[in-house]
Amino acid sequence: MNCKELVYMLEDYIDGTMEEQLRRELSVHIEACEPCLNFLRTYEKTRILCRHIRPDEIPDELRKRLKTFVMEKVRERQRNIEKYLGEEARERLRQVEALLRAYAVNRLPPVVAALFQAHNDRCERCGAFLRSINGGKGPVEITGIPPDVEEHIVEFLDALPPGEATNLT
């Protein structure tokens, strides 16, 4: 072990990750070598002094400006998301209404009609609602679609083969 090797292993020596055998060799060297002892002491002292470094404080004016900027952007983003979600919901409702109107006048494309019938035969809630809007015997004003029925029909629309849903509107 010489001084050069010692310096390059100092980190492991100090943080305690050095294996015992090497550690003993190092200690023997340090005891006999004044420059290395001094080096070790000043190296450790440097580490301690580093704790007195304070990160730059943010000036008040800058803090306020930053916060205003960030919060403004976040609110703007939130408004856009809400707007988008609102439009999505309205668009979904339009599609559901279109489907129901087409159903009421027996104008559903054959594939859709068959699939829709299959769902309504299985689903009590949707079946009951459809019977209440006249069971496909004529034009009807579609109002007050119960939320769970709307949800089922949205799922139904989402699961249609590509292109079939757009044919309705």
């Binding site: 010489n2 050069k4 420059p35 002892l37 001094n38 080096f39 000043t42 002094l49 704790r51 007195h52």
Partner: peptide
């Protein structure tokens, strides 16, 4: 031979004072 080529002083004891620690930070 891998020995220190320059003089290594031990200044660790001289900087114990609190005020100096801050300055050195």
């Amino acid at each position: 031979e891998g020995m220190h080529a320059s003089l290594i002083d031990d200044w660790s004891k001289e900087v114990e004072r609190k005020a100096l620690e801050k300055e050195l930070g």
